[in-house]
Simulated assay, not measured.
Amino acid sequence: MMWVLYLLIFIGLFLLVFLTVSFVLLRPEDYSTFDSHEFKSRTALPSIANKEVIERVRNMGRQLHGVRGRARILAMRQYMDGISDDLQMVSTVTATDQPRGEWVVAPGADTRRRILYIHGGAWMAGSPRSHRSMTDQLSQIGKAAVFAVDYRLMPEYRYMAGVEDCRKAYEWLLDNGPEGKQEAQIMVIAGDSAGGSHTLALIAWLRDQKLRQADAAIALSPSTDMTMTAPSNRSNIATDPMLGPMFGGLQKVPLSVLWWFSTATFRMRPASPVASPLRGPLHDLPPTLIQASDCEMLIDNARRYAAKAQAEGSPVELHIWQGMVHVWQIFGPMLPEADEAFDDMAEFLRVHTGAEEQDHTS
């Protein structure tokens, strides 16, 4: 039986070496110093409608329970695409092939004012259709034509394919509107969750490439750090009815293993600024509004990003809501706090893009 003992010793030594090498090669810089920053917080208690939203989210989780692999991804996509099925839109919707996506244009919108919208869905689900409640509202409050890019999703495509789609869509929008060739006067980039990550990575890329920068950016409950080292990634599992059931189990896995898994899945280190905007330089960025909920797993990712960006001189704001689900803004038709969030975005756009002034002069 000595061989069993030798095998166990070998396995133990292998795991020790594996964990040590992982921390040496992949361990990210410690950003815990940014966790103590205070930001504007909405202190009112959640509305009664919030309970209905939470139950709706939990029902989605129950439908996905026990579904694994490809079937789970397809079920997520189907569920998300159905969110806006009963939506009464005021905007017109026009699909495009190159780049792939759709224009959402509210009555009275100035097509020279443009918003690139990048949907969420964990880089595996979501679409322009699933987020029409968001793009319809954004076109109205921004007095702008919204282009929702239908970027390529994982696992059918690599992560960088989606990144490249967002970059190309932005460059295309600079010279093209819903009516054809026309130079943009105002450019805004907005996105939620995974799309919020793409949004924040895109404005950094535009700065580095010395391309025309967006006039403003909006990130809703963004993923800013794939290293998963922020405290709320673990402490808010129980209070996040959307991300907790979906990703909470991953927190039982050692970080070093998750870093290797992330590296293999995304084909880049989790600390790469392309996947983790927090981990790159945050100077010289445009005015940026971040909205997040205090009970979601990603709140500390948002807090760290805003604090670091402010420390590096960029005008980034973080507004925190109490007790909301992840990306609660998508439930606008039924949730008063979603309307309040869009009012907050409208004021931000008024200040930084002159949306109200445009309304008066159009």
Rank of each mutant, 00 (worst) to 15 (best):
A145D: 12
S193D: 10
W205C: 04
W123M: 09
T135A: 02
N176M: 06
G180F: 12
W123P: 05
K210E: 15
Q182H: 07
Y170C: 15
D192N: 07
N176C: 08
I118Q: 12
V188D: 04
S139G: 11
G108H: 05
L200N: 11
V146Y: 06
L202K: 04
C166H: 06
R207M: 09
Y170T: 11
I203R: 00
L206Q: 13
R112V: 04
K181E: 15
G180C: 13
M160T: 12
E171M: 08
K168I: 10
T111Q: 06
G195N: 12
M187I: 07
P178Y: 12
G195S: 10
G162D: 14
Y159D: 03
D136L: 01
R152L: 14
A125L: 09
S127G: 05
D175R: 03
L174D: 03
L202Y: 08
C166E: 09
M134P: 02
A122Q: 04
T199W: 10
L116V: 10
V146F: 05
Y159Q: 04
R129Q: 15
W123D: 09
Q209E: 15
M134W: 03
C166P: 01
Q182R: 08
A109G: 06
R113C: 06
V188T: 11
D192V: 01
G121K: 00
R112W: 10
A194G: 10
K168V: 11
L206S: 10
G196V: 02
G195I: 07
R152K: 09
I141K: 04
V188W: 04
P178L: 11
M160E: 15
S130P: 00
M124L: 10
Q213N: 12
S133M: 05
I186S: 03
E164S: 03
L200M: 14
E164A: 06
I141M: 07
R212Q: 14
S139P: 01
A169K: 04
W123R: 01
K143I: 03
D192C: 04
E156M: 07
L206H: 08
T199E: 15
A106L: 10
S133N: 08
Q140E: 14
Q209V: 09
V146L: 10
G177M: 08
Q140P: 00
D165T: 00
A106F: 11
G120A: 12
W205E: 11
L138M: 06
D165G: 01
D165I: 00
R114F: 10
G108D: 14
M134C: 12
Y170L: 15
Q140A: 09
V188K: 02
G120W: 13
Y157L: 08
D192M: 04
A148H: 05
R152M: 12
W205D: 13
R132L: 11
L211R: 07
L174N: 06
R113K: 14
E164R: 00
T111G: 02
E171P: 00
L200T: 09
A194R: 03
A169D: 09
M154N: 09
A148P: 02
P155H: 08
G195Y: 08
P155D: 01
I203K: 02
Y151L: 12
S127Y: 02
A169R: 06
I186D: 02
A125I: 05
R207S: 07
